[in-house]
Design a protein around this nucleic acid. Structure first.
Length: 493
RNA sequence: GCGCCGCUAGCUCAAUUGGCAGAGCAGGACACUCUUAAUGUCAAGGUUGAAGGUUCGAUUCCUUCGCGGCGCACCA
């Protein structure tokens, strides 16, 4: 193995040995720092050109730049809060400590102690009186000017990407704030955060292909959840009136700029509310997150300006087909709609039902053209087995999706709570499943039993958190907002 | 799953028509006590993603495979 290491890796291992020989522990257990980089910058802001800080500080972090000058040395240290420059001098450290200091590599963690002063170029800097090795780095860092550019490496070795590309870290800090803003918004409104099973006996709550797993002791197959919906509704039955869950769901489907096999979904349920109430809630909640990154409610996404100023457009699906697709299917027979779809070049629709055809028409003709925030409302009954029929039109359901930049951000309905109706709809789903539709819902008798006990009228909402973060951070791919997006493994291990 | 593009030193990138594979940064040696993409001098660093083929000669042309990116399909 040792012979196969490149020059650079070998050199670093040699240095590790040199440090050990000099009596340094390359991996000590702890370090007492008095300040973070940000604390030093704010606390010693007023220090002038000629003076040193009255007290010594200590700082810990990673070396990200080295500038040697013979008998003096500058380095940049980065910690969790920012960067700070340090300055070491042979006179102060003494020959032995200074020569070891010179041997430090980019990427090594050190702790330094010293007074804070301001350099000729007005930069706050620690004058190092003592230093400690905290962790020896054995790999070279990427180029200091361009950083790590290769997308594959950035996703695979995210730790390096985070180390050297400040913009990457920014995106994830924003993600954390966005998630927090949404939690705060819901908690302020009296919603309680709950947790439900991820290992499911049945597949349900969405139209999607699940991942399969297996429980050895129980000797039974399990599915990773595709949505928490049916468990959250059981909680409505149990008496929780305002609840939400933010968590990972898993879908065994293709990967694209807006799809990852596991992603973070927010689901919200409110008793005694309908989809109109949920629409208002959704708008207010998303706006509370947008304010984190853009108080003026306008932002750029992939070169396009998205204006989030409320109120957002609200268009019935059939109306959207007229406006964006140039087709009018209102009151048309199934035959006529099929021929319209064929006329638009939609393939493979002979076997699917009329509701699905309308969905396909919508997906092809409308959704890509919806760039500004828009609620599409009132969907065909057939494709929404968990939503209540629309008041005054039983062919439709009370459902909306929030579309921004051609992406579905949210999906919500007036939740179906009629156990007889729900049983009929799940029966149809079970038939589809038996006929080979792997995305169809399962017949969930326990869920139906819960509904039979009585579930209050309620509105429910699902939000794709990753996609929201994409929009708010101008990230072109879902992989850019996931610390560790799914990647095929490489051969070499 | 299909199509197009990419893969060259640790990193960022060059390489003319198929003719000795190069630079910057990082790393090494030397010099340098306020630099900040520090600077100067010198030396080193490569199975060009993998395997095969065509050719006197392949980073370059062809085939297969791997990984990635983008688009399409599927989906949220």
């Amino acid at each position: 193995m040792a012979e196969e290491l490149s020059e650079l890796l070998r050199k670093r291992r040699e240095k590790l040995e040199e440090f050990k020989k000099a009596g340094l522990d390359p991996y000590p257990y702890k370090y007492n720092r008095t300040h973070t980089s940000a604390e030093i910058l704010s606390e010693f802001e007023k220090i002038g050109g000629e003076e040193d800080s009255p007290n010594e500080v200590s700082l810990a972090g990673r070396i990200i730049a080295k500038r040697g000058h013979g008998k003096a040395f500058f380095m940049q240290i980065v910690d969790g809060w920012g960067k700070l420059q340090i300055y070491a001098k042979l006179d102060i450290l003494g020959k032995e400590k200074y020569e070891l200091f010179e041997k430090l590599d980019m990427g090594d963690f050190i702790g330094v102690k010293g007074h804070v002063f301001r350099t000729k170029t007005k930069e706050l800097t620690i004058r190092v009186s003592d230093w400690t090795l905290l962790s020896k780095s054995l790999h070279p860092l990427p180029e200091k000017w361009h950083g790590l550019q290769d997308k594959e490496l950035r996703y695979r070795e995210r730790y390096v990407d985070l180390m050297v590309n400040a913009e990457t870290k920014e995106v994830f800090l924003k993600r954390i704030k966005i998630v927090k803003a949404i939690r705060n918004f819901l908690e302020d409104k009296g919603f309680l955060e709950v947790e439900t099973p991820i290992l499911n006996v049945l597949q349900g709550g969405a139209a999607a292909k699940p991942f399969k797993s297996f429980h050895d002791a129980l000797d039974m197959p399990l599915f990773l959840r595709i949505a928490p919906e049916l468990y959250l509704k059981r909680l409505l039955v149990g008496g929780f009136e305002k609840i939400f869950e933010m968590g990972r769901v898993f879908r065994n489907e293709g990967i694209s700029y807006k799809h990852n096999p596991e992603y973070t979904m927010l689901e919200v349920y409110e008793a005694y509310a309908d989809y109109n109430d949920i629409m208002k809630l959704t708008e207010a909640m998303v706006l509370s997150a947008i304010k984190i990154v853009s108080p003026e409610l306008k932002l750029e996404f992939k070169g396009e300006i998205i204006d989030f100023s409320p109120p957002w457009k609200k268009i019935p699906l059939l109306e959207a087909l007229r406006q964006y697709g140039g087709i009018d299917i209102e009151g048309k027979s199934e035959e006529e709609i099929r021929s319209i779809a064929k006329g638009k070049g939609i393939e493979g629709i002979e076997k699917i039902g009329i509701g699905k055809i309308i969905n396909v028409l919508y997906d092809k003709l409308v959704e890509p053209n919806l760039r500004q925030p828009t609620f599409i409302i009132d969907y065909p009954l057939e494709t929404s087995p968990l939503a209540k029929k629309k008041r005054g039109n039983p062919k439709l359901v009370e459902r909306f999706e929030l579309i921004i930049a051609g992406m579905e951000l949210a999906n919500a309905f007036s939740e179906l709570n009629d156990p007889m109706d729900q049983r009929e709809r799940l029966k149809k789903q079970a038939e589809l499943k038996a006929a080979g539709d792997i995305e169809a819902e399962s017949m969930d008798e326990d869920f139906l039993k819960a509904l039979e006990y009585g579930m209050p009228p309620a509105g429910g909402l699902g939000v794709g958190i990753d996609r929201l973060v994409m929009l708010l951070t101008n990230s072109p791919s879902i992989r850019d907002v996931l610390f560790f997006p799914h990647m095929r493994p490489h051969d070499n291990n």
